[in-house]
Design a protein around this nucleic acid. Structure first.
Lengths: 229, 229
DNA sequence: AAGTTACTTATGTCTAGATTTATACTAAGA
DNA sequence: TCTTAGTATAAATCTAGACATAAGTAACTT
């Protein structure tokens, strides 16, 4: 009898999946549901709120709750820190700094991060290895206006990613995934052939409205990003 | 004074982002926080629960709540229905069924979906166009043991994706992203050259433990999947 | 020293109410 | 007919308290 919010949630879920409550249909209101399940309204509310978060139902004040026509299915990816990603596979992680230089921000980067004309950036090229094999190539640009202290950091031992995570606690982020081709420069680093298809993640990060860093992560050919839900 | 759960949440968030509560630190317990914010414990609880869902803090009974060492940042993607995806870009959507056949499940598919030896599948090849240009190639396999009614459906007008969404309301899903090369077959459909890098999404779907469908979606070269948070 | 048990504590969940807020609907006025 | 002001409703949130559950800790046993 005494239903928990999980009971309510899974019962409503099954009513939706079996089609008893078809897409577009109005779901009974919270008070009625609380009565039928013999629980408090807050319990029903939590179940419904989570279902709404999951994209299965749509809730509007006064209008009531209805089953979504096309359930919005969301995939969640944990944006991986390379070291953790590699270690979780049981492989030994190795990091190497390829080059480091301070230079004026190139035009494409200024446009992408909305930087001022005379912005200087710290450009870092790094490699990440799993059990000695090339795993990921990191091409990173750090806005020295936002993070002047980056200039003095030695990135020989600790990768810029981990340093940034420890330094800027929270940020706005834009991530995009795409497929590209390995060019001459990449083939050397990733030990692959020119024209191999490579998986690329690009990430731009802002903090308090100011651009902090842009990074292009290129994985060795064959890499897959997988999620289950 | 009277703090809402959003007040509490954003205040805690700012304490974390400013570094006042550093990664690894123990956060005051719910009772104390409720006292400092002058609200009920349930209000603090909701704020904390959402922060934990967002991956910023880690909670354990008895052990208390602490700030995550490496904030797990999750990217959420809405798994798009191609038609909606294209229409949202303001382009005109067109769908075309290329081929449809019933055949025994090939070995790689049986392995991937854990199908029985004698499983028959419906294989559909489709194309999706945006403003007349090739946008996505769909190579779909439907398990006829799970969905025998699929055999009788005409997929001339409505794409299998939309039919499936309307037919199976909920499922377990495995999605993976990767980069690949356009082969001879794909270049014709996608109007690209052999060796062009293409972005591929593979999705396997189960319902009540039974494999329903596997689909390989290949986007035209240059496609990007982007998210912000 | 190692294993077991009891205690304590922080989070997890529920209850039965109340208040607030957004908004669909309706009726009055222009 | 169009606009606007009101009203009722359903969700959104909060409260103060209760019990449940997991997990460190300490005390006790072997």
């Amino acid at each position: 009898m005494k239903a928990t919010y999980k009971d309510v949630k899974s019962d409503i879920l099954s009513k939706i999946t079996t089609g008893e409550w078809a897409p577009g249909n109005l779901v009974p209101n919270e008070v009625d549901l609380a009565a039928t399940y013999g629980c408090a309204r807050a319990t029903v509310n939590r179940a419904m709120r989570e279902l709404a978060d999951d994209g299965l139902i749509e809730r509007r004040r006064k209008a009531g709750t209805r089953v979504r026509m096309t359930p919005i299915r969301q995939a969640r990816f944990d944006i991986p820190i390379v070291r953790v990603e590699i270690e979780e596979k049981g492989a030994e992680y190795r990091y190497s700094l390829v080059s480091s230089s301070v230079e004026p921000a190139p035009d494409w980067l200024r446009a992408r991060l909305k930087l001022s004309n005379k912005s200087k950036v710290l450009r870092l090229v790094c490699m990440h290895y799993a059990d000695g094999d090339p795993y990921q190539h990191e091409d990173r640009w750090i806005n020295l206006e936002a993070l002047p202290q980056a200039k003095t950091v030695e990135f020989d031992e600790v990768g810029p990613n981990e340093w940034l995570v420890a330094t800027i606690p929270f940020s706005d982020v834009e991530i995009s995934f795409s497929a590209g081709l390995a060019d001459q420069r990449l083939t050397d680093y990733l030990a692959c052939a020119i024209g191999d298809p490579v998986f690329t993640i690009e990430r731009s990060t802002w903090w308090e409205g100011q651009a902090v860093t842009y990074v292009r992560l290129t994985y060795k050919p064959g890499h897959r990003l997988t999620t289950r839900y």
